[in-house]
Structures are given as C-alpha cells and as structure tokens.
Write a protein that binds this DNA or RNA. Structure first.
Lengths: 217, 217
DNA sequence: TCTGCTGTGTAACATTTGTCACAAACCCGC
DNA sequence: GCGGGTTTGTGACAAATGTTACACAGCAGA
C-alpha cells in the first residue's frame, strides 16, 4: 500500500520494464509519477471509481474482471509488468468512471501517471503514443478472444482456455487453483467445474490434486 | 462498390459527419483519401484480411461481428456515420490481420485513410488524436457490454438487450427482423428465439408480426 | 490424536438451451 | 385463386448447465 516517490527508484523500475521508451520519456515519467504498492488480493480498481491517473504495471500481476450487480464475477485477462490498463488510459483521459475491476493476484507495483500529463506525453513522445496504441490493440484482441470463448465454446472448452491462460501467467503446468476459484472466474458453479475437470482427468488432459491442477496437454 | 475521389465531394461528406475535425484536417483527408461505396449486405472486412487503410463510416451503417471456424456468427455492435472501426485503426497502423467481420446492413460509404497517413495525422492534428482515443474507448465499452450480456445474462435477457440495440440503430420501435436473423446474430437457433419471443409477447413486452417485432418496453 | 475447516466427489433433480420434425400462416408472382 | 417459397408456432426429446444435498478426504491447529 506504500507509495514510492524517489525518482531514481522509479526510473530504475521504468527502465527495466519499459525499455522501449526513449530516455527523455522515462525521465519525464520518473519526475512526475509515483509508484504505488499493492498487496496480494488488493483491489486496484472498482467499478464506479473515477480515475485520476493511468496505471502502468511495473511489478507483479493483476487480474482484470467484470462484476455484475448480483456479485457475479467474470475474469477477462491478466496484466503483468510492462502492461497498462487500457481502460484506465481512456477513462483517465476523459475523467470517466471505471467499468471494470482489477485485483492484484500477488504483491504488485503500479506507476501512476497523472491525467494532466497524458496530452503532453501523447503528442510529445512517439514511443508513448505507440505504447498506448499497442496497449489498446492487445487488450482489444484479448477481449475478442474472451468473447469467442463464451459465444462459441462449451464449458469444457472454456475450462481448457482458462487453464491455458493460467499456464501462460504462471509459466508452469502445475497450477495452484481450487475448483471454486475457477468457478468464480468463469461465473459458473463449483460442482460444474469439478464434474468437467474429472472428465478431463479421465481423458488424460489434467491431473487433479488438492489445490493444484496439472496440465498434461 | 464505386470509389469517389472527387475532393470537394469527399470534403463535403467529411464536414457533415466529422464536424469536430479542424478544417485543415478535413482538407488533408479530402486530399489524400477516397470514399468507397458498399451495397447492402456487402462485406467490408473479413477475418484474415490485411488492412491497407483505416475506415471511417460517412454514410449508412455497418454491423461488426465475429465468426468462428464452423461458420457461427456473433454480432457485437454497429457502426454508423461518424464512427470508425477501432480494429482497422490498430491493425492498419501495424499492418496486421483483421480479427473480425464487418458487413454493410444498408448501402454505405466509408472513407479510406491510407496507413501511411496515420502517423502524421496522429501527431499533427489534435482533433484526430482525440477522435482515435474516443473511438477506442467507445468500442471497448461496447465490447464490455457484450461480454456482460453473454457472461451474466440468460437468453431472454440477451434478446431484450439485442432488441434495444436494434431500436437504437433504427430509431424506431418497429424492427424489421426475422427470428432467424436474431438467432444468427446471437449464435443460437431459430426455435429458441421464437419460443422466447412468444413468451415475451405473452408478458406484453413485444408484439410479433411477420418480419417485424414491435418493442413495447 | 482429535477436531474442525476447506476442498473435492457425486448422485439426483431442475432448468435452460439446442435439435428434430412437422404443421400452419403468410406472401408473392402467376 | 393457386402453387411454392419463406416465416413462424409448437411438441417431443436431447444435451448442457445449474442446484441441492451430503459424504468424505486432506490438512492444520489445539
């Protein structure tokens, strides 16, 4: 929950994860932005919240999900070091409300870029402008994949898709997940997930253990 | 399918639908871009196609949808005069492949902006840069609503959501739709849609006729 | 070791959605 | 008014997903 304002430290974190930025831009950001720490499970954004700054993730990882009025959740994608939240950029620019939720899934750090700076960065630094476009593009494409998965696929295919995403995130085939977590992320129920995972195990696609699922495909 | 290159005509269409652009920008666009005509039902984009230009819709309306490998379709949102395809902007910038399909739902015209021009427009014209950001923001939000509708809602709620969108498009409560069209757009089957529409009629939410659905809510 | 909590397995049943089959209603051109 | 195509209505059934209820396994702390 702490905040780092020490320029040299901010600069160092930027250099290591945003190497594509020109040195001037990095200095500029180090000068005007602060780093905020988040604990595991802490929320970075809630729906309805107004943005006063854009967030660039410089450490850890964050899950982006949607909530409905009845407390249902639906996981969309992860952000890691070097990523930015597309929505926080747009909403920040226009001082609009967040439509999504974001939660740190491990201790994480985010660079907070004040709205006031956005115009100047956008017009003055080509690497920033490219970064913003690239951020939109990749988030948009991820969202399209998510739409695909729920519009066209059945539950067991969606679980497969989900597990692959988790593998990408954790760089391991052994995933520390409970069935309930998966059910929550997919806005389904634990029994359904258990049932389908069991079938996948029988087909030799996964191995199930308490709190772990090992991907075999 | 025709192409208009006549500058004064291009300029006029731009002025009437993109009034927020500064005059210089409009002249610039009129000078370097052409207008392409599309017939009703003609496809503007297909998945896998490479973009050589970004499209701004200057007349008519266009539906943006996703296709899966088995020919399934899933409608996402409409573009009308004054809108731009977010993906064509990003993909155009990076010369990437389209991930979506777009089809004119009535005779339409689109301004084709060559990729080569994008950088110059982005850095040289503030109203363009704002337009691009606003385009991303609104498409992204529309897509989030779509995700909501399939992640959290049941079929009858989704039909309601769909009909409301159609009403917004046609500015009328009497929608010229067949059940089959709705089923295709929602990647469902005609019988399911008929059944649920019938129930909605019994609840007094709609009135059904051949090729028309009248919204009563 | 006992105890209690959390996570998993599973059966039985409800509900929703999809599929198949076919009839009836409507519309258009002849 | 008569076909023939298209659109809609509907029943019966299949499959997928959600719900309820409960048993039991594994782990951690008393």
């Amino acid at each position: 929950m702490g905040i780092t304002t020490e320029h040299s430290q901010v600069q160092q974190l930027l250099e290591s994860h945003f190497g594509q930025f020109e040195p001037e831009l990095i200095s500029k950001l180090a000068e005007h932005c602060v780093i905020r720490d988040f604990e595991a499970d802490q929320q970075l954004m809630r729906p309805g919240q107004y943005f006063k700054s854009t967030m660039l993730i410089v450490e850890g990882s964050v899950k982006i999900y949607r909530e409905d009025q009845d407390g249902g959740e639906f996981f969309m994608y992860h952000l890691g070091a070097g990523d930015a939240c597309a929505l926080s950029m747009i909403c920040a620019t226009r001082e609009e409300q967040s439509q999504i939720s974001a939660k740190a899934i491990e201790p994480s750090k985010a660079l907070l870029v004040p709205i006031a700076l956005m115009d100047e960065l956008m017009t003055g630094y080509k690497t920033w402008y490219y970064f913003v476009l690239e951020t939109y593009r990749s988030r948009f494409e991820e969202l399209l994949e998510v739409v695909d998965s729920i519009a066209f696929k059945s539950m067991d295919e969606r679980i497969e898709f989900y597990l692959k995403n988790q593998r990408k995130l954790s760089h391991s085939d052994e995933l520390p997940l409970t069935h309930q977590q998966i059910a929550t992320d997919m806005n389904s129920s634990r029994e359904v997930i258990s049932r389908l995972l069991k079938k996948m195990e029988q087909r030799g696609m996964v191995r199930l253990g308490r709190n772990t699922i090992t991907i075999l495909f």
